[in-house]
């Protein structure tokens, strides 16, 4: 019995800033998860992860995170990934207040 593959995004921390970034279709790293590539195929996910891991001078700790298709692009599923798109809940710091991220 084959399980259905949960769509993924490739995500990591930026080497210089340390903040969360996501891999786009055109091989950029974005700070807005909605712009990330939503990967719906397992083999493709592995290829994209390898691609991320081959950029150790740009990002740290790349991994595949579960995601789903939303109206504006990929959305996080697990609460940890939700927090990574926003920043901490105790201060208005991080992505929730940074430009380019609505």
């Amino acid at each position: 019995m084959s399980r259905r593959f949960t769509p993924k995004v490739v995500t990591a921390n930026h080497l210089l800033e340390g903040d969360s970034v996501w891999l786009t279709v055109d091989d950029r790293w974005t700070r807005n998860m909605a712009e990330a590539e939503l990967i719906e195929d397992e083999a493709h996910a592995q290829i994209r992860l390898l691609m991320a891991e081959s950029q150790p001078n740009v990002v740290v700790g790349a991994y595949l995170a579960d995601a789903r298709r939303g109206p504006r692009g990929p959305e996080p599923i697990h609460f940890r990934e939700v927090f990574r798109t926003r920043g901490p809940s105790n201060h208005a710091h991080g992505k929730q207040v940074e430009v380019g991220n609505v």
């Binding site: 340390g18 903040d19 740290v60 700790g61 990574r84 710091h93 991080g94």
Partner: peptide
Amino acid sequence: RLMNGLYLQLHAY
């Protein structure tokens, strides 16, 4: 970096 007290956390170093 760990020896120098620098950790990589969820949103930043």
